[in-house]
């Protein structure tokens, strides 16, 4: 069962744990703000993109498509496909929270991102609601704040630093994955399968990129569930 430690301290722990994500988001968000400005999106719209959509890759995609003159309906359709991977992530995270009517779930689900998911999903014990909120919304502040900084002052950040920061989120994923892989061979095979399938699909350009990652995750998780033994399949 979950420990119901006191809520403020859970919240604080969550915020502390978010530090790597907080730092990792800033350069990406700054780039988004900078790019939005150069695309001709207003400050308010740029802010709303990050504050309401809160899904980086699709926001960048939207800017590109706006510039190409693609219709809003099509952009929304692509966004749906691109962000549908969160359905899979939420499916996993939902197993932490047995009460579907808990009033915090709408907020927790809004905060589901690749990064917060990756962190939460590999923790040993199930986190409480307030820990998750602290983690997610600290990352949210960084994402929205970074966007505004990028729009207003992005040009002052040296280009080389901006480019190198492009690796930050990948380093974050690697840092989360490696300890898991060291513990479990099926986990390693699952991750490698996911990466390989995603690479092959990306290269083949047969599906759009939003589908690629969904297919890769589904197939790799399928392979993984065959490899995991009963014990690993259970909750600790």
């Amino acid at each position: 069962m979950k420990k119901n430690g006191n809520q403020p301290s859970q919240l604080r722990e969550g915020i502390l744990a978010s530090l790597p994500i907080f730092i990792g988001y800033i350069p990406v968000a700054v780039t988004f703000g900078l790019l939005a400005k150069s695309t001709g999106v207003t400050l308010l719209e740029t802010f709303l993109f990050s504050a309401l959509v809160f899904a980086g890759a699709s926001q960048f995609m939207a800017l590109q498509l706006i510039q190409m003159g693609v219709s809003p309906i099509q952009i929304i359709a692509v966004t749906f496909i691109m962000n549908f991977r969160h359905f899979l992530m939420s499916s996993y995270l939902s197993t932490f929270f047995p009460e579907p009517n808990h009033f915090l779930l709408p907020f927790i689900s809004f905060g589901v991102t690749d990064e917060s998911f990756a962190y939460l999903a590999t923790r040993k014990e199930h986190p409480g609601h307030h820990f998750v909120l602290g983690l997610q919304y600290s990352a949210y502040v960084s994402w929205v704040g970074g966007t505004l900084i990028g729009f207003l002052a992005g040009a002052i950040i040296p280009r080389t630093l901006q480019v190198s920061m492009g690796l930050a989120l990948y380093a974050l994923f690697i840092a989360i994955l490696i300890p898991e892989v060291k513990k479990s061979v099926p986990a390693a095979i699952t991750a490698i399968t996911g990466g390989l399938i995603h690479s092959l699909l990306t290269r083949s350009k047969y599906f759009s990129s939003g589908w690629n990652i969904i297919i890769a995750i589904l197939v790799a998780a399928g392979v993984g569930s065959l490899l995991m033994n009963e014990k690993e399949g259970e909750d600790q």
Binding site: M89, F173, L177, T190, G194, G195, H198, T202
Partner: peptide, 27 residues
């Protein structure tokens, strides 16, 4: 079975999030 599948999603997702994106992270 569904539980086991869900349990594998984090690893599958991490792999797919890292590759191939990381290789092209520095344009």
């Amino acid at each position: 079975l569904v539980k086991r599948f869900l349990r594998c999603i984090p690893y599958a997702a991490l792999g797919a999030l890292i590759l191939p994106g990381a290789v092209t992270a520095i344009p």
